[in-house]
């Protein structure tokens, strides 16, 4: 954890830590603490009287069918974003890992969407999915399939899922490729000599050996789908139509920003914090295990 040889100064380390700790306290611990505190309070309509209501905000939240709806939307959305972006990335990584000419060129061509902001990715997909000015949207309407992601909830969900997954593929691709390249060639050759077919080799040898990467990416992609996709949803559907694409984070934004409901939005922040802590804890348990190998 720390070096054996150290400097003896006592005041200096505090000075070095000061900038980071100051920012952490003011912009992390203070707001997180306030969120927890406010989640137990309720203000009246005029913001004059505030009373302590214990868990009432939470109870109300979990009794609100709209909140449960947005939880369901978040689950469906995250499931598909994770599945799509990871499986496409794995497929491309397996192909790029074959020793063919131009493998580096493919790598370069596949990694740059990593740099595109989720909101900008969403704007790019407008020109694919828009019913009048989008390539696919216009085509679908032309052959008689009614397509309009601003009116149809399922189509809206498909649109935000595809745009979100698209942006995440390059990140997953990089990690899968690094994972594949760290598998010893001797293992693969042994399997090949044993006469296992390529498909069999993949599912019985490569895929299990990739499981640390896969698991790590699973957590990362879920976190991405929960939080970072706010920009995609805001740019494409604004949570609509009829809340079909309102995820938990979008709902927290609407309640805090538009409805100015401090108690409820704080309670929602606390729920989200618990979700992140759970995801992080799962990840750490896993990393511990990896260390013990």
């Amino acid at each position: 954890m720390r070096k054996k040889v150290i400097f003896p100064q006592l005041g200096l380390p505090y000075l070095l830590l000061l900038p980071q700790l100051a920012i952490t306290v003011v912009f992390f611990f203070l707001p997180a603490g306030q969120a927890i505190w406010f989640s137990f309070l309720r203000q009246d309509a005029f913001g004059i009287r505030t009373e302590f209501v214990w868990f009432e905000n939470f109870v109300e939240l979990f009794q609100d069918p709209l909140y449960l709806d947005s939880m369901w939307v978040t689950l469906v959305f995250s499931f598909w974003v994770t599945l799509l972006s990871m499986s496409v990335a794995l497929g491309l990584a397996v192909l790029a890992d074959r020793h063919i000419r131009g493998a580096t060129a493919y790598k370069t061509l596949l990694i740059w969407p990593y740099a595109i902001a989720p909101a900008v990715a969403a704007v790019l997909w407008i020109f694919i999915f828009h019913p009048q000015i989008g390539l696919l949207g216009k085509f679908l309407n032309g052959i008689g399939i009614k397509w309009d992601y601003k009116l149809n909830g399922t189509q809206a969900l498909i649109t935000v899922i595809v745009a979100s997954a698209w942006k995440q593929v390059s990140y997953n691709f990089l990690f899968f490729l690094a994972g594949l390249q760290s598998i010893p060639r001797s293992v693969l050759e042994a399997a090949a000599i044993d006469g296992a077919s390529p498909a069999r080799r993949f599912w019985t040898v490569v895929f299990p050996l990739l499981s640390p990467t896969t698991f790590f990416l699973l957590v990362i992609n879920l976190t991405y789908a929960f939080f970072d996709t706010f920009g995609v949803i805001d740019a494409l559907t604004k949570g609509g139509p009829a809340k079909a694409t309102t995820t938990l984070i979008y709902r927290a934004y609407i309640d805090g920003r538009v409805n100015l409901d401090l108690g409820s939005s704080s309670a929602q922040s606390v729920v989200l914090m618990l979700a992140v802590i759970a995801l992080t804890a799962v990840q750490f348990r896993f990393i511990e295990r990896k260390v013990h190998y």
Binding site: T24, V26, F27, F28, L30, P31, A32, Q34, A35, F38, T223, F227, D228, F230, I249, A252, Y253, G256, R257, L262, S265, S266, S269, L272, M273, V276, I277, T280
Partner: peptide, 16 residues
């Protein structure tokens, strides 16, 4: 702080 991405504590931080 790894556990508290800005999106999660967005409104309290905004208030601060």
């Amino acid at each position: 702080t790894l556990m508290l991405p800005v999106e999660v504590r967005i409104f309290p931080t905004f208030k601060v």
